Simulated scan of single mutants.
Amino acid sequence: MLIATGCLAGLAACGTASQSHKMALAPADALQLRGFMPEGLRGQVALADVSGGAETGRWWGSKVSSLALEHALEESLRGVGLWAPSLPTARFRLKAQLLALSQPLVSLDTEVASAVHFSLVEQSSGAVVYQRSVRTVYKAEFSEALLSHPERLRLANEGAVRQAIQLMLRDLANQRY
């Protein structure tokens, strides 16, 4: 029994890095949101400061890196038509900080909660025009990765961050600029 518990704990500790393209909005979701984006934001948002992520280590479970979050945000902004090619020419800059990623140590259905803080700042005035901490939960079912807890953890991480990005973009679609 002790050996089986040790093996299970060892498997739970292995890390699988989250993939940015799985955290970005799906093309169909991006296309649906694109038509609702305000004219004043289209092609006017560049990324600045994306922080708070952590690199996945071999022994410390799946994490979301700041770089992966940045790539997911860029892909999502491109998908909905907000992406500005360079920071100096953009009207707005988007800042994102991964505040928390709450993960279970071992589970069958793996549920991860994320908290991401987003700020949209107008370049010319420095005024914050949108700010929100988005908290989301995503559950990766046991059947999605039957024999791999690290894989379920990665799927849950990606789903929680994807939902946070989607909520932020839906908020932006309801604002006037």
Score class of each variant (00 low, 15 high):
Ala4Leu: 14
Thr5Trp: 09
Thr5Ile: 10
Cys14Lys: 14
Gln19Phe: 02
His21Thr: 09
Lys22Pro: 01
Lys22Asn: 13
Ala28Phe: 09
Asp29Ala: 12
Ala30Lys: 02
Leu31Trp: 10
Leu33Pro: 03
Leu33Trp: 04
Leu33Val: 06
Phe36Ser: 13
Met37Phe: 10
Leu41Arg: 05
Leu41Asp: 07
Gln44Met: 14
Ala46Ser: 13
Ala48Thr: 13
Asp49Gly: 08
Ser51Asn: 14
Gly53Gln: 00
Glu55Lys: 10
Glu55Thr: 10
Glu55Met: 12
Thr56Tyr: 02
Gly57Met: 06
Arg58Thr: 11
Arg58Met: 11
Gly61Arg: 02
Val64Phe: 05
Val64Tyr: 02
Ser65Lys: 01
Ser66Gly: 09
Ala72Glu: 02
Ala72Cys: 04
Leu73Ile: 03
Glu75Val: 00
Leu77Lys: 00
Leu77Glu: 00
Arg78Gln: 14
Val80Gly: 03
Gly81Arg: 06
Gly81His: 05
Leu82Asn: 02
Trp83Phe: 10
Ser86Leu: 08
Leu87Thr: 07
Thr89His: 09
Leu98Asp: 01
Leu99Lys: 15
Leu101Asn: 12
Leu101His: 06
Ser102Phe: 09
Pro104Val: 01
Pro104His: 00
Leu105Gln: 12
Val106Lys: 08
Leu108Asn: 15
Ala115Phe: 03
Ser119Phe: 06
Leu120Gly: 02
Gly126Arg: 08
Gly126Pro: 08
Val128Phe: 12
Val128Gln: 12
Val128Lys: 15
Gln131Tyr: 10
Ser133Ile: 12
Ser133Asn: 08
Arg135Ser: 13
Tyr138Glu: 05
Lys139Ala: 11
Phe142Ile: 08
Glu144Gly: 04
Leu146Lys: 12
Ser148Met: 03
Arg152Lys: 14
Arg152Trp: 02
Leu153Phe: 02
Arg154Thr: 01
Leu155Lys: 11
Glu158Cys: 00
Glu158Met: 01
Val161Gly: 00
Val161Ala: 01
Gln163Tyr: 03
Gln163Ala: 13
Ile165Val: 11
Gln166His: 09
Met168Trp: 12
